[in-house]
Each structure stands twice: as C-alpha cells, then as structure tokens.
Design a protein around this nucleic acid. Structure first.
Lengths: 234, 234
DNA sequence: GCAATAGTCTTCGTATACGATTTCGTACTC
DNA sequence: GAGTACGAAATCGTATACGAAGACTATTGC
C-alpha cells in the first residue's frame, strides 16, 4: 500500500500474494500509471481473464479501490476509473492540504539531517528540471520530495490518508503543473523555505501552516487559471 | 453512510438493497451498537447464515468495513472487530482532531442561527446530563452536538473522514468520559465557547484551532488519566 | 510429565454456474 | 421520419462447491 513514493511495481509481495491482492495491485498500478485513464470502463470478466483469475477476487479488488476513491462503482452497471472532475480535484487537494500539512508537522521533529539533505537534492533536481520543463517528471520529483517530509509521521492513520490523497491525484499524471508552469517555480522556492523551517525545528503550527499553504497555493493557481471566476478562500 | 448522527438503522435503502449492502449495514450496525464488541470473531459463514445470504456478499461487506477501519482482517484466518488498543485510540483521536477541526472551520460560515440554537439546546441537555452522569448518553449527545457543527462542511471527502473517525470511536460506546468524567464539565464549557466563535463569524483559523484543541484536550485528559496509574478496570 | 507430531476440523479463498438487471439494437407504428 | 416497444446481448450479483491454509486436539515418544 505504500509503494507511493517509488511507484515501482511491487515485486515480491512476499511469499503469498492472494489473487485478490494481485488483482488489487494490478488494477491499481494500471490506474496510477495511466493505462486505464479516467472514465475507462472496468469490466470484471475482462480483467479477470487478463489476470488469469476468476471474477470474485477482481470484484473484491475493485471494491477496495472504490473505498480508496480510485474507482467509481454503480450498482448493476459497473465500475469506471474515477475521473478528476475539477470539483473532485478541488476537494482532494483541499483535503490533502489539511492532512499532509498535519502529517508534515508531526513528521518534522523526526526528520534528520540526512533526510533534509536528500530532500534538498531532490529539490535541486526539480530546479534543474525547470529549464526544459517536463511536467510528468517534475510531478514525480515533487511527490518524492514531499514523501521525505511526511513519511516519518508517527500516526499511521494520517499517513494513510496522505497516501490515499496522493494516489487519487496520481490519476492525472501531468498534475497541475502542466496547466500552471509558473507555479512550479514558486513551488521549488517554497520547498526550500519548508526545509529551513524543519532544520531550525520551527513550531509545529508554523510548519503545518506552511505545508498547508504550499499545497493550497498550487490549488489556487489552478483555480485561477482554469476559470477567472470564483475564488474560494482556503 | 451518514447515519452517524441519528444512529438509526437506515430504513430507507430504497427499493432494493443489494445483499452486499444489507450485509454491510447489518454488520456495521451490530458493531456500532455493540452487539459485536471489539475482538469479536466475525465468521463469514455464520454471518451469512444469520442474514440468510451466501458468503460472497458478506465477504465484500467485511472488506469494506476493513477499509473503514472497523474490522481487522487477517489472511486465511478471519476477521475480528477492530479493538481499541490505547495506541489505536490515540491515533484515531489525533486524526479526528485534525479532520474534524478542519471540517468545523469549513462548515462554520454555513451554520445558521437555527443550527446554533439547536446545538445550544443539545449542549444544555449535556449540562443537565452532568448531574446524574451517564457516559453513554453524554457521548451520544456529544456526537449530536459536533455533528451539527461539522455537517455543513462543503468538502465531502473531509466530511467522510470525520464520519469514519466517529464510527471508529463508536465501538467504545462509553467513550473517554467514563474514564475522565471531569473532562465532561470542561467539554460543555468549551462547546459554548465554540458556538460563540461561530456566531461571531470568527476567523476560520481560530475556529479550526479551537475545535482541534477541544478534541485533543479530551485525548490528553485520557492519556493523563491512564498514565497516572492503573485505570480502574471494570 | 512434557514436547513434538500427525491428523482432523474449522474457516477462508477462489472457481464455476446461474439468475437478475441493464443496455443497446431493431422493428414496428403513428 | 421519429418515437416507442420488444428482444437479445452484455454484464453484474449471488449461490454453491471444492481446494487450501491455519488451528486445535489427541496420541506417541522421550
């Protein structure tokens, strides 16, 4: 469940991967990597055949993905990959801003110098990436960066919520930055500021607020771009 | 999914509740109302027979409940009602403090005078309830009170997280207040303070912080109590 | 008497089968 | 020509069946 950062296709899964697990992992991977794009119709029998299993485990997998918000399910009709309705995007980003902010703040005291160095190096890569801008790569680095910051969060529930949020966003691979490339520049700077706060062991409140604002600023940039209309407070 | 407040056994479910839904609702109800207490072993075949369905829909229901955190599932072993490990309690309360705080803050601008009046009346009942203290009733009123405050939250994701948190806590029906009755008094006062903030349209930040602290104070009281010495087992 | 092992029994995991529901296409009528 | 009704195909929902994994128990050996 925590292949969030590396996005590697979980290889081992230990000794026993139940068919259910396999199906879950496979479908999830295909959604995250974009093979199944939003709106794609997930036909149970088809997937079952592809994976060489029966429909029962596939059903279970789909239901789990539904609970995670990656899949939309309609009774007697079928499952489709959850789209990213602009509204949905807003909700997800707002939720993520809150839980990720909290996770980062809780994680901060446990972040060592080595982690900070690692994060800084990722951020340097991002800065480099700004030249010949590649939204997909930038987005992945962005996730790597933030993972370092919140992954030490001692509360597994919150951490799980953060992962779910990121996963949901993973559907749109190019992320917001494709639409608002300018935001990418600001983002890199804010990352450095965030690292400074962590290094200096700033107050948890301060870190939380900074992390939250960092995310909602991205959301606001997107909203401002997509429609010059309604401007919601955060 | 939002029968949180009333706790009534959702009767509607419209025309046809799929067996899966039935099973989900039935098991969830039994967990929430305490028929299945933490640690209770959920045997698929048994439940299926009780409900007059086959095991397949029951499996699905259990998996959904697992995703919600109400049930713990172990491969090839079975499902049990998720206990409330003190650690787990801590995690859940902390998570709830964050998401409920946010939900309340987001909800605040949409809370009308009628809602405030309703909340105040519930709080009055709680104050009354302090005389001949009944932890179970107090806890239910407490949930009613907070429901009024966060239920207008415009972000359905956050609202859902709040509901899940409350549901998880519903397992321990008597709640913290049984252990720390003194906290109940403070709680009622803080409720009134919270209402004042909402009435005067205080800053979202202020409301959020107040709501969050209100909950973490309960958690702290619990922790202080359980650390101080052996809490009286019953 | 204790420990280890073998056998049984419970319970889960998944495949297959069939009934139910929806959707789509076609033909018929106005 | 457009709309409606009927029917067929596709797909989901659930039951039943069987194989597999873990847990419990009894027996045997030390």
């Amino acid at each position: 469940m925590n292949d969030t950062a590396t996005s590697a296709a979980t290889p081992a899964a230990a000794h026993t991967a139940s068919k259910s697990e396999q199906a879950y992992a496979a479908v999830k991977a295909r959604i995250v990597d974009g093979s199944y794009s939003p709106g794609y119709r997930l036909v149970l029998a088809k997937i079952a055949e592809d994976l060489g299993v029966s429909v029962v485990p596939v059903r279970e997998a789909i239901r789990r993905l539904e609970a995670e918000g990656l899949v939309k399910f309609e009774r007697n009709v079928g499952a489709t990959v959850a789209g990213i309705d602009p509204t949905e995007y807003l909700y997800t980003m707002q939720t993520l801003s809150i839980v990720e902010g909290a996770a980062t703040a809780l994680s901060a005291p446990l972040i060592g110098p080595a982690d900070v160095a690692r994060a800084r190096s990722v951020n340097a890569e991002m800065r480099e990436c700004l030249e010949h801008f590649d939204p997909v790569r930038f987005t992945r680095l962005n996730q790597d960066f933030h993972s370092i910051l919140f992954e030490h969060c001692p509360n597994p529930h919150i951490l799980d919520l953060v992962h779910r949020g990121w996963n949901r966003l993973a559907s749109l691979r190019s992320s917001t930055f494709r639409f608002v490339p300018r935001r990418a520049h600001e983002s890199v700077d804010e990352h450095e500021a965030l690292l400074r706060l962590i290094e200096t062991a700033a107050d948890a409140d301060v870190i939380e607020k900074a992390a939250r604002l960092h995310r909602s600023a991205t959301l606001d940039a997107y909203l401002a771009q997509s429609n010059a209309g309604s401007h919601s407070a955060h």
